[in-house]
């Protein structure tokens, strides 16, 4: 008898629990913002009882899934192309909105004891290193911006990501903007046909290559570099100033790009204007259907996004992401308000 009572009680609790948390939002996409998204989903679902299921399968996967309609929202480190947006519209009967959530940056890390902690690089030098045109540390072009350093006659080992990644996307987008030779021969994308260097899998793969080989240079996410205490280069931005990557200089890049921000917020903010802007910065976006079939889910997503623009932003810095500047949040809120309208 007692056993059956306990069973009934347990059953009642179980059904009650599942009734209050019946709404479940499925998402998939970028791995870069996974840490802050899981924090957001965790905090938000405790406050509001909505469940999230986010698979960090990569930006490409996120775009594919939102195109096929297998998820309620996607996430990507690179904006969708016009052709991709058209395809979703045809298949799902709804436009897709890009909502920036947080920002990240890509830093150039190096292993050159003679360069100390503050190697200076100009866009031209960086592009030439990755093109394989500058091969030695004592190249006059590097020496010119690092006059106080005694750089050796040592070969530069270039390291890049071997896996397709949003980090590569931002980095090559930057090189594409600052170097004509690069844009003609290589281009930008999540994977490119690298003219030089070795590939490592993931941030840890590139960092491993760099750490192990003296004379190496590579690019990793700012968050990864900060967490692992890697030294990274000070880059010259569009305004000509040498800027160190930090949450402030990344947010400044978004603010600097606000003038040229297109209405749909699909924008690259690499090589942004502004004296304090760090040049290799980028947004990461949530991909949201403008008109969802399930109106209850749509409302929940609007509520969540509004929360993410407010309280959500306060979690960014602790998790090594740069929060959105106020100007961008205003634009995002306008976008969020348009969800559900025709």
């Amino acid at each position: 008898m007692r056993f059956s009572k306990i069973l009934t009680l347990a059953l009642a609790v179980f059904t009650l629990g599942s009734a209050s948390a019946q709404l479940k939002l499925n998402g998939a996409g970028a791995t870069f913002p996974y840490v802050i998204y899981s924090k957001w989903f965790d905090v938000y679902s405790k406050q509001n009882g909505v469940q999230f299921n986010y698979q960090s399968i990569g930006s490409g996967g996120g775009i594919k899934q939102i195109t096929e309609g297998t998820v309620d929202f996607g996430a990507s480190d690179g904006p969708m192309s016009d052709a991709q947006l058209k395809e979703v519209k045809e298949k799902q009967g709804s436009a897709v909105l890009h909502i920036p959530t947080v920002m990240g940056a890509v830093v150039v890390t190096y292993n050159q004891p003679a360069a100390g902690k503050d190697l200076h690089l100009t866009p031209e030098v960086l592009a030439k290193i990755y093109l394989g045109q500058i091969r030695y540390w004592n190249d006059p072009a590097i020496k010119a911006v690092n006059p106080d350093k005694n750089l050796p006659n040592q070969a530069i080992l270039v390291a890049h990501r071997s896996d397709g990644s949003g980090t590569t996307s931002i980095f090559t987008d930057y090189l594409n903007k600052v170097s004509k030779t690069w844009s003609l021969n290589v281009g930008k994308g999540t994977s490119v046909n690298w003219p030089a260097g070795l590939g490592g899998k993931g941030n840890e793969g590139v960092a491993g290559l760099v750490k192990q080989s003296e004379g190496a240079i590579g690019y990793v996410e700012l968050a990864y570099a900060v967490k692992n205490n890697l030294s990274y280069a000070v880059l010259q931005n569009k305004a000509g100033a040498f800027v160190e990557a930090s949450f402030e200089s990344v947010s400044a890049a978004a603010a600097g790009a606000i003038k040229n921000m297109p209405e749909d917020l699909r924008v690259s903010i690499t090589d942004a204007d502004g004296k304090n802007s760090y040049p290799i910065s980028g947004f990461t976006w949530l991909l949201i259907y403008k008109n969802m079939k399930d109106k209850a889910k749509e409302q929940e997503i609007v509520k969540f996004l509004t929360w993410a623009m407010g309280e959500g932003q306060s979690y960014a810095k602790d998790l090594y992401y740069a929060p959105l500047p106020k100007e961008v949040i205003t634009l995002c809120e306008k976008k969020i308000a348009s969800i559900g309208t025709k």
Partner: peptide, 12 residues
């Protein structure tokens, strides 16, 4: 095998 593992997730 490596190129598949590396690039499949982000093949757009």
């Amino acid at each position: 095998a490596s190129v598949i593992a590396n690039e499949f997730a982000e093949a757009t």
